[in-house]
Amino acid sequence: MVGEIGVRGVSKSFPLEGGDVEALKGIDLNIASGSFISLIGPSGCGKSTLLRLVAGLVEASEGEITLDSRRIEGPGCERGFVFQEHTLFPWLNIYQNVAFGLKMQGLYKERKGDVDEWIETVSLKGFEKSFPHQLSGGMCQRASLARALVVKPKVLLLDEPLGALDAFTRMNMQEELLRIWAAHRMTMVMVTHDVDEAIYLSDRVVIFSPRPGRTDEIVDIELSRPRARNDEGFIFYRRKILGHLNFGGIRKDPNYSI
């Protein structure tokens, strides 16, 4: 198995007017290969920054991040990235967008078939010739997913990928993500604001606290799959996580059980 991420003593500060702002401080985290991890926390807690650090889009101020024991320096195609907005290239049609990564790596000729396969996997068959502005937000996000996956990354980094979608599309996309994850067994790391989404999808939920961003708590979700959104275990985890995020209401004890 590949796609194991190690985060050791990582801090990140950004220069801002009147001094540096610490976005992340002393993060230690191990992400097992083939697992689904969610990063959750209030706005400004640095969870997206951590994701961008893993992607290599920004550089850590301190500490190091490794992928399969190799230090990460700069972006690379073994770590796919899906943004909140779909970020499809508007001048390319859906097919060309999905094929973009293979073309950049000069692999398009030998792996043409993968493009069609992924377009079919995300149910966009028949829309190959459409341009992004002709499709709905959900369809575009599925195309983004296909574009990131066609280059066979070991790790898929998802920065609130479903945040801009309506509730129904969102739930469909969650199923789709799980299907892809189960079929390809890659490591997935997702930033989300949605507690239910985190519980529904993840093996582990990492809870961040803000200013400076640190990992507050790591919750292992020990529910069998497929999961039901309203069974007791699910509600237990929801209370537990909301409690950590200080949204638990009157009851402060996170280990309260039904």
């Binding site: 992607a55 290599g56 889009l57 690379g76 943004f83 990131a148």
Partner: peptide, 18 residues
């Protein structure tokens, strides 16, 4: 050009002149 396009490109293996 939105920075995000270049970021997506870099995670898909686009480098330099590409």
């Amino acid at each position: 050009v939105p920075q995000a396009y270049f970021e997506v490109g870099s995670t898909l293996g686009a480098k330099g002149a590409r």
